[in-house]
Every structure is written in structure tokens, then in C-alpha cells.
């Protein structure tokens, strides 16, 4: 059973890379898992990577007790509004950010440990009809929210104690922003995707909207996951949850697109499609460096090398049923795959 899960089921090629099972954690009190993530946590003079699991009404922090064993450290109970997602804050220690709401995000909260009071607590950062949120390096949070009349984009700088230090308004594009990604290595640059299938660029320091660029209408509702600038081009990793299968390239899951921000022109660099012979399509996914992972409608998790456009491993649905969540750990190289019943398995 275990061996079967470790071998990637690729019908058409060598199994050069595979997923190696590391450990499992199971929360028997979790009725329905909604998200999983990792967070850096400093305690007793050392900093370690911990796992965070979320159900609709609670968020739990797990610490490694032994190489293959996890223990729950604390559970924050959030019973008034359901938890929708965990929002990773890169490079941030001892703070978990969560989005709560009914159909869409209504508030964003920080969950943290206060050494002053020796207690776990949570604090409210933002409320509204929030369409998209992303955590950036240096404890910054960007969100888009919508009123009847207008769209508001805001960056909040967070203090170590979970307060908001500073707020910067960003100029909104005409279309609703659906996702954000920081431009790696450029602290003041942010990109976003829009409901009109454009990629937009902001200057976070000034709030200026610098450029709006068409992605092309072949792949509607693109979601940006990662962006970096190289040799004067802006490379953006997009996923395509609503893309239709085509004869020439199958069902696309991720695409790397190169934009020239000066001219707004773009060209596709690489496609990552569902592995051949696998029915279904992309449901949701995560990107870390050049690795993409996604849950498919078949209940499997697939992993790709995004620069080679190659599916490198598949986790078929196991005895516990369909996979529901696929996330990369903050360190990369570790995949967290989760079932709805609260079981999370870590693979290297």
C-alpha cells in the first residue's frame, strides 16, 4: 500500500523523480479540512518549520516531535465566521494569517503567540468583500476588495505583534483582481491577474499601476502563482482552472509566460499539462520555485517541473479517498497533501 503510493504512476516514461513519504499527521477532531500550510516558529531559542491545518472553525499548529511524528501545539477556535484559507506570509515567524468568510473572504486575521502575556491570541487586520489576498516578504499583506462602486487595493505592513504599522493604497485596474504574486527579488514590484485575463504590475512603494498586459483569450481565468524578472523580461507562472482540453496540448494545468513589461507583449515559454491517460482537470494547486503541484478532479495530486513542462510524479487517491489539498512547504522540496478528513501526508 505504502510502496504503491510512493511510485509515481507515469505511463509514458522513466520514473526519474518520485515522491518519498516522510510523515503523516491526523487530526481526529477535524470534521472537514479546508487548508494546510507551514509556518516558521521560534520557540525556546530555535526556529523550526511547523505545520498549520485549518478546518472551518479552527486552526491548529503542529510541531515535529520526532522524525515521523507530529504533535498539536495549539488550536485557535474561530467559531463565528468559517475559515476559508491560510494565507502564507513568507519569511515571517510566529504569525499565521487566515482568511475567513462565507462565500468570499469577509475578514483577514492574524493568529499568533504573545510572549508578553504568554498566550496565543488573534487580531483582526482587514474586513470587507475581499476578492484576493497575498502575503509578501517583510510582513506585508496585499488584498483587493470590492464595494458596489469600486475596487480597493491595499498593502498593510504588519508589526511583529500582529498590529498594522502602515497602509498603502494601490491604484486599481478596471477589472477585478483575482490573484497576486510578488516579483521575486524586486521588493517593490507586485503582479496580479484580473477577471479580464490580464496581468498587471504595481509599484508597491508608490501604489502606481505600471502596466496592464493581455494574457490571451485561449486560457481564460488565469491565476498568477509566481513572478520573477530576468534579462528585462517578466516571467509569470499561471494556472488555468477553467482551461479546456485541446488536441494539441491536452489539459493545461500551469503555464510559464514571458512578458516584456516595456511593450506589454508576451510569449508562452512552457506548458505543463495533465499527465496523459489521466481523466479530469486541474482543481487547485501551488507553486514553489520551478515545482508545481495540483489536485486533479480525479482525486490525484500531480507534480510538475514547470520549466521542463514535465509531470514528474502522481499521487493517486489513497485508501483515505481523494486528495483535496496540495501545498509546498515554506522551505520547498516538501509537499503537503491533504484529505478532507484532516489527514495530511508529507512527501519529499
Amino acid at each position: 500500500d505504502v510502496v504503491e503510493q510512493l511510485i509515481p504512476l507515469l505511463p509514458d516514461g522513466p520514473r526519474e523523480e518520485s515522491l518519498q513519504f516522510v510523515s503523516e499527521l491526523k487530526d481526529p477532531s477535524c470534521p472537514c479540512a479546508v487548508d494546510v500550510s507551514t509556518v516558521w516558529w521560534a520557540a525556546a531559542g530555535r526556529r523550526e518549520l511547523r505545520v498549520v491545518t485549518a478546518s472551518e472553525s479552527s486552526v491548529s499548529l503542529w510541531e515535529p516531535l520526532a522524525p515521523d511524528c507530529w504533535g498539536k501545539v495549539h488550536t485557535w477556535h474561530l467559531r463565528e465566521i468559517p475559515v476559508i484559507q491560510i494565507v502564507p506570509l513568507p519569511d515571517t515567524c510566529n504569525i499565521v494569517c487566515v482568511a475567513l468568510g462565507e462565500l468570499e473572504i469577509g475578514e483577514i486575521r492574524l493568529l499568533l503567540y504573545s510572549s508578553e502575556t504568554d498566550s496565543f491570541k488573534h487580531s483582526l487586520v482587514k474586513t470587507g468583500n475581499i476578492k484576493a489576498v497575498v502575503g509578501l516578504k517583510d510582513r506585508r499583506l496585499v488584498s483587493s476588495s470590492r464595494t458596489m462602486q469600486e475596487q480597493q487595493l491595499e498593502m498593510v505592513s504588519l508589526s511583529e505583534t500582529g498590529g498594522s504599522k502602515d497602509r498603502q493604497t494601490l491604484m486599481p485596474p478596471e477589472e477585478t483582481v483575482t490573484a497576486f504574486a510578488e516579483v521575486e527579488g524586486m521588493r517593490e514590484a507586485l503582479v496580479g491577474t484580473t477577471a479580464g485575463n490580464s496581468v498587471v504590475i504595481w509599484n508597491l512603494k508608490t501604489g502606481q499601476l505600471l502596466r496592464k498586459m493581455d494574457v490571451g483569450y485561449s486560457y481564460p481565468a488565469s491565476i498568477c502563482h509566481r513572478a520573477y524578472s530576468d534579462s528585462g523580461l517578466l516571467f509569470v507562472v499561471l494556472s488555468h482552472p477553467h482551461a479546456k482540453e485541446s488536441e494539441s496540448c491536452g489539459s493545461p494545468a500551469f503555464r510559464v509566460v514571458a512578458f516584456n513589461p516595456r511593450t506589454g507583449r508576451s510569449t508562452g515559454v512552457m506548458f505543463s499539462c495533465l499527465p496523459p491517460g489521466r481523466a479530469g482537470r486541474y482543481l487547485e494547486g501551488d507553486v514553489w520555485d520551478t515545482a508545481g503541484a495540483a489536485v486533479l478532479t480525479s482525486g490525484a495530486v500531480a507534480v510538475w517541473d514547470l520549466l521542463q513542462g514535465r509531470c514528474t510524479a502522481v499521487l493517486p487517491p489513497g485508501p483515505a479517498g481523494h486528495w483535496a489539498l496540495a501545498r509546498w512547504a515554506a522551505t520547498g522540496a516538501v509537499l503537503l497533501a491533504g484529505h478532507r478528513n484532516g489527514t495530511v501526508r508529507l512527501y519529499r
Binding site: M171, M186, E188, A189, I201, N203, T206, Q208, L209, L210, R211, S229, S231, G232, L233, L234, A258, F259, N260, P261, R262, T263, R265, S266, T267, V269
Partner: peptide, 23 residues
């Protein structure tokens, strides 16, 4: 991808676009 497909490329695109965009 070639420069002819994407147009002239600038290594300082972020600074240039920030200088040109409305404040």
C-alpha cells in the same frame, strides 16, 4: 523568445515604467 517577438527589452523596465506612469 526573440526581441522581435516581444519588442525592445529594457533591463530597467521597473524604474522606467514607474517614471512614466501616473502618480
Amino acid at each position: 523568445c526573440s526581441e522581435s517577438d516581444l519588442g525592445p527589452i529594457s533591463l530597467n523596465w521597473f524604474e522606467e515604467l514607474s517614471a512614466e506612469a501616473p502618480p
